[in-house]
Design a protein around this nucleic acid. Structure first.
Lengths: 209, 209
DNA sequence: GTCTATAGTGGGATAGAC
DNA sequence: GTCTATCCCACTATAGAC
């Protein structure tokens, strides 16, 4: 249990440095843009400037690559969510902050978020990816708890179907990874603020009634 | 050009009857639930109770199957959208009706809608599926036109970013195909009404300010 | 319209040299 | 840590009998 025995994987998680992390970044981009099944190990190797066989010095399999990419993202996001709940007892600001942090995640883990969206259903059929369903369920518990708290406190409409509202927000926020460009003119903060505004007050002109 | 020469495909489009349509329904369900690439022609044949070679008596290729499934849905939805615009000059009711009709589409073409969502990006790389991008662009024009009209007429907030609002609505509505169950307790109409309410007036308690 | 049989291709993964 | 060479398998698609 000395420092010497720290696995290469743990080291990668901390610093994101080294060849292993480079290869994961390359693989992640391909998995996200072309899909996990459509991406071949030969393509990953080509993009890295090596031959496909050499990849197996670093990873057991193609599945191991996507596994590590997803775990890194999910570990991070779980921690962030817990922190938001601790720091924001008020439901309305908590929801707004969860949305902002979701866009920050797309900024930091754009490929992992896309892979999580696109491939969870396929991957979840394998035992080693059971944790994907568990993570999704945990996210749902976090968001719906905040929505229900806000409803009790009178911040959100009493006639709201909480589960439906959760799906509504989740689908809108997380799906934007398909078009959201972290390097584009719309910053994560701008999009997040617009989305918070629509969620809370709708698209109608307030003077209307 | 006599009736005798009507292609089997044209006939299928009209009535949805015959062996060809049965096979397409089976393939569509598999493509939607497991993904296009993850579904093998052998699985389709198994589900149909025949051998994989026999499928090629009906279809050129796996791609031809998904092509026909998608075209049927897109042709239908295009016609519906045009009709909504003609029947509803008022922007607010037009948006509400577009949303309702989207849920009806998920009711009628659940598999085609899912395939369109999940596989467009992959399929669009092939020339024969160029029409998928064109259809997506046409949907965008339809929805943003209504949003802009509503903004000019004072129904929607002037500070709304129309393109962002469109993506917001599109992502929310069409992504719900992943969890929406046409035979479940939530009917298309109930979900559509809740969504229209959130879009227009938000989740906040109105008495608040 | 379906079956038998199989061609042809490209995929993930491995063993051992360097 | 990468390369050479290659195995083995599953897949799409085809040809021709029934």
């Amino acid at each position: 249990m000395s420092a010497k025995n720290a696995s290469p994987r743990a080291a990668t998680r901390e610093a994101g440095s080294g060849r292993r992390a480079e290869l994961l970044a390359i693989a992640g981009e391909l998995f996200a843009s072309r899909g996990f099944l459509a991406t071949t190990v030969r393509e990953i190797a080509d993009a890295a400037g090596i031959l496909s066989g050499s990849l197996y010095h670093h990873f057991d399999s193609k599945e191991s690559m996507v596994d590590e990419i997803l775990r890194d993202f999910l570990d991070h996001q779980r921690a962030i969510n817990d922190e938001v709940l601790r720091a924001h007892p008020d439901a309305r600001t908590a929801i707004a902050e969860l949305i902002r942090q979701s866009f920050r995640a797309m900024h930091r883990y754009p490929h992992a978020v896309a892979i999580f969206q696109n491939e969870s259903k396929y991957l979840a059929q394998f035992d080693r990816f059971e944790y994907l369903s568990r993570a999704a369920a945990e996210f749902e518990r976090t968001w719906t708890r905040v929505l229900r708290d806000g409803q009790r406190a009178g911040a959100f409409r009493g006639d709201l179907n909480v589960k439906l509202a959760y799906r509504f927000i989740r689908d809108t926020v997380w799906t934007s990874v398909h078009w959201y460009n972290p390097r584009g003119r719309l910053t994560a903060n701008v999009v997040a603020e617009q989305y918070v505004a629509i969620f809370c007050d709708g698209i109608s002109e307030p003077d209307r009634a």
